[in-house]
Simulated assay, not measured.
Amino acid sequence: MKKIIGGVLIIVLIALFVWRVYDLNANSFSYENRLHSEQEAFQLENTAEVSVENAVIIEDSDIKKYVEEKNYFKNENEKLLIVQAWSTEKNIGVSDFQLGYQDFVTLSDISATSYEYDEDKGQYKIMLGFNVPKELLDDEKEFMLVVPSKYWNKGTRDVVEVSL
């Protein structure tokens, strides 16, 4: 009897493990983009309201205008792209934002971030910095800013089209 119960328990544990691995893989790779435009405010999982205002490419000398220098790191052969966003929540996980190019998230090296509370708007101004290879920025292609994965819901993620 103990062998039967032990065998059933092992089968159940293996089934749970296989189901969990399948579920993780399915959620990671089979998502739909819920597309938003710049300036559009949208809700994240009933928590924060977010909007993206603009994106600019900055030179080393201009970095202090946008972010605190202690948070700044720039790779040698890349440019720094700063994306300005607004959020009603400070703890949104700024370091988890990803920058995508041509429908697939390829760039997530955030090197400069800062928060600033705006009393008039009642929101946090967020500056996101991305190290981006020069050749991608030279073409002035559209990028996609992807919200942190903890806000993805049932295979859907919020994405903002960012144009330079």
Rank of each mutant, 00 (worst) to 15 (best):
L136V: 11
A85R: 12
I63E: 01
H36K: 09
N46L: 09
I126M: 13
S111I: 02
Y124G: 06
E140W: 02
N75S: 12
V146R: 02
V67R: 02
F42R: 05
K154F: 08
Q43F: 10
S108I: 09
W19V: 01
L107F: 15
N54A: 06
F73W: 07
K65W: 04
L44F: 06
I82E: 06
K70N: 03
K150R: 07
I10N: 00
R34W: 06
G129K: 08
V52I: 15
S51V: 09
G7N: 05
S30W: 07
E32S: 11
K154G: 06
F17N: 02
A112H: 02
N25E: 05
E53T: 15
L16H: 00
I10M: 01
K3G: 00
A85D: 06
S28K: 03
K90Q: 15
E45F: 10
S87K: 02
E119I: 09
V50E: 03
A48D: 03
L99Q: 10
S28Q: 06
E161F: 08
E89T: 11
E38L: 15
Y22H: 02
W19F: 01
N131M: 07
M1V: 12
Q84W: 01
D138R: 07
V147R: 00
F17T: 04
I58V: 15
L99Y: 11
I14S: 01
Q84M: 05
D96F: 12
V67P: 02
V94L: 09
E161H: 12
V94A: 13
V67Q: 02
N46P: 01
V12F: 10
I10D: 00
V94C: 08
F143D: 05
S37P: 01
L164M: 15
V52P: 07
D138C: 02
V147A: 05
R20V: 00
K150L: 05
I82D: 09
M1C: 08
V56Q: 11
K64N: 07
V94G: 09
S61T: 14
S61A: 11
I57R: 05
G100Y: 14
A55K: 04
K150S: 04
F97P: 04
N71F: 13
S37K: 14
V162L: 13
N77F: 08
K2F: 14
H36W: 13
L35H: 08
K134T: 15
I92V: 15
N54C: 03
E140D: 08
S149K: 11
Y115K: 03
L35M: 15
G100N: 13
D62H: 03
K70E: 04
S163R: 14
F29D: 08
K70Q: 07
F42H: 07
S87M: 03
A55C: 08
V18Q: 00
E116A: 14
K2D: 07
L145M: 10
K141M: 06
E59K: 12
A26F: 06
Y66P: 04
K125L: 13
E59C: 03
Y66H: 10
H36V: 11
Y72S: 08
A85F: 15
D118K: 09
L81F: 10
S28V: 02
V18Y: 00
S51C: 14
M144C: 07
E76W: 06
